[in-house]
Nucleic acid binder design. Structure first.
Lengths: 370, 370
DNA sequence: TTCACTTGTGAATCGCGAT
DNA sequence: AATCGCGATTCACAAGTGA
């Protein structure tokens, strides 16, 4: 892959380059209906208040960049409307778009996509295997981001490599929930000070799945919020042409250097990006939620000496202790630890059955469908 | 639990009943600021637009299907705006709402929630362990639905049972992605013909997690799209009061019968793990007053680097600072804050013991005499 | 080379009550 | 209404260190 241009409706289409400037202006300068796919990771409009510290008192390095500041939803909506309109003009009639966001902005993007006539094909959840925890215990761990995949219009004959994604997923249809780790370690690009070069660098595994599944080799992929160029890097690996637009010169520099080092796809790279799947865990509380065990129901210890009751939150209670299946078992046995899964039994039709049997049922289901 | 009413701002609040009629009208007839939580599973599908209302409350004629796509969204948006507004009026200032939807409608609901001043706390992905496959192989298997959890306003002190959800998840904080099976088998209610009674019955496991995590026993939970009454059934099990609104008489009948059969879990089972925040506050000075620590006695920091002396008024002193256990700890560590209870230790029989142990003794005594 | 242990960090809308 | 002080709160990895 080299830098090149394509003649397109009388205007030159710059390929495999990173263009500077405001993405709306730049998009409007490019020829209409010339791009096969757009991948867009716009500012999320996080509205952070004060500093946040971890329990060990270290400070969280938050996304406080100027480019993520908007005065109101109205201003953010106008921005979204404008860049989506410019993006839509660039798409070929059978083109498609991916956008990514969090609950701060994704509802507004999704609604505007629909308003402009894009046709949503799927929303896709990127489940992070290693998200940042909720340090204050005030909400659920924010463990996912949302992508929206939409055709330019209802009648667009979009590209979907069904078999390729099925193969990626070990022979089972690819689902709308993707478990992938966040971008860390050597993949995370550092600046000269050793700090992260960009606060929100996306993992290559994510773009790999997007581009493999919804473009063909030789397609033109445009990313209007290019950042450090993950889209370009993966496009090059996979033999697609890219156009990047990025306002900040520092990001453009990093991305240029990064992409120059990329070699076109080899099998090993595919292996890496597909093998990073995390094992599901089964919590005892899930058995209660699913009605496999009822709150108030009694469990019996393996040796028959102890009886406890199940509580609605998946803890056990006896006269003198409450806690997890493991904690209560250990306490009652006077042991330092105890595997509650094999220690506790419940009754069905007069028979005692180990609770581990229920866990196996849940596991089997998860394995079938994960 | 029995059918009852609560006097609320001069108007009766009907509890544990299913009210017939249009949900917007019914909600507007109930007293303002009387409900702790709303769970709403509104129609997803724009095919139902014939049953929707225009902004001027006139009914849309389903047969007159001249609507282009753009108009359909406008009508759906008006419907969403109206029922959310009515719901918002019913919520107590510290109340919260859950809505559930798919990519067809959830972006519009999320945006409207934000527009009305609700404050999004999390979006939650219900990741289905057994979704229906995509038979035609044209898209990704649609394997999830999205819930949005929002406070009535940014300043709402919403209920969040952090420890209970953490216990439910085996000691690890609950994430924003929930793997639960869809409603099938015996849980799925059948009509007299043996067909499913309702097309989109939600699993009880989903409501169990929602209600356990974001309400307290005795709270009032309203569901304006009650259907076959999963919200009511789980509310009853968990000792919460519910108000259901459902337009279709056939669904009301099914739900009534279903809920009558539900038994409340016993109170012991409903006790969930609580956070330390809920425990009574103990002043460090009390330990000195009670002779558990003597003025002049030395305390040692967790890391062994600092030694300070206890003073008679319950402050600590070192060479260069005097103040509370927290202030002195924070100063010596150069940290913005410090929990003195876990930071400081005293000596008994040669052993170092955290001062938090003494606080626990005081709390145990307080509980005995309360 | 391996293992055990320590340190660092990631798109975060992350208190509450008394005064 | 705004301020102030108590005091509660983290998961999965990757990289580095030292024996």
């Amino acid at each position: 892959m080299t830098i090149k241009t394509k003649a397109q409706k009388g205007l030159a289409l710059p390929l495999n380059q990173i263009l500077g400037g405001d993405c709306i202006d730049v998009m409007n300068s490019l020829p209409a209906e010339s791009v096969d796919l757009i991948f867009a990771d716009p500012p999320y409009n996080l509205q952070l208040r004060g500093d946040l510290h971890r329990p060990d008192n270290s400070k969280v390095d938050a996304v406080d960049n100027d480019w993520d500041q908007f005065d109101s939803f109205a201003v953010y909506d106008a921005f979204t409307r404008d860049w989506l309109k410019a993006a839509r003009r660039l798409l070929k009639p059978n083109g498609a778009i991916w956008v990514i966001g969090s609950y701060h902005n994704v509802f507004r993007m999704g609604a505007e996509l629909q308003n402009q006539g894009f046709w949503i094909l799927n929303d896709v959840v990127w489940h992070k295997s290693n998200p940042m925890p909720n340090f204050r215990g005030k909400r659920l761990t924010n463990a996912h981001e949302t992508l929206i995949w939409a055709g330019k219009s209802e009648s667009s004959k979009y590209t979907f490599n069904y078999e390729a994604l099925k193969a990626l997923n070990e022979g089972i249809q690819m689902r709308s929930d993707w478990m992938l780790p966040i971008c860390t370690g050597h993949e995370r690009i550092k600046d000269d000070n050793g700090d992260k070069a960009h606060p929100t660098q996306k993992p290559e595994s994510l773009l790999h799945r997007v581009l493999l599944g919804t473009t063909n080799p030789g397609d033109v992929v445009l990313d209007p919020f290019f950042g450090t160029g993950t889209t370009g890097a993966v496009a090059k690996m996979l033999g697609r042409d890219f156009i990047g637009i990025e306002r900040e010169e520092s990001y453009r520099k990093v991305a240029t250097k990064r992409i120059a080092k990329v070699r076109k796809f080899d099998n090993e790279a595919l292996q890496v990006s597909t093998s990073k799947r995390a094992e599901p865990r089964v919590a005892f509380g899930v058995l209660v939620e699913r009605g496999m065990l009822r709150p108030g129901e009694e469990l019996y210890s393996l040796n028959g000496r102890h009886t406890v009751k199940v509580r609605a939150d998946g803890t056990l209670s006896s006269d003198d202790i409450k806690g997890s299946i493991h904690q209560v078992g250990a306490h009652l046995e006077g042991a330092p630890s105890c595997n509650g899964w094999t220690y506790w039994q419940f009754k069905r039709e007069g028979q005692r059955v180990p609770i581990d049997l229920l866990r196996q049922q849940v596991r089997a289901e998860m394995a079938k469908h994960a």
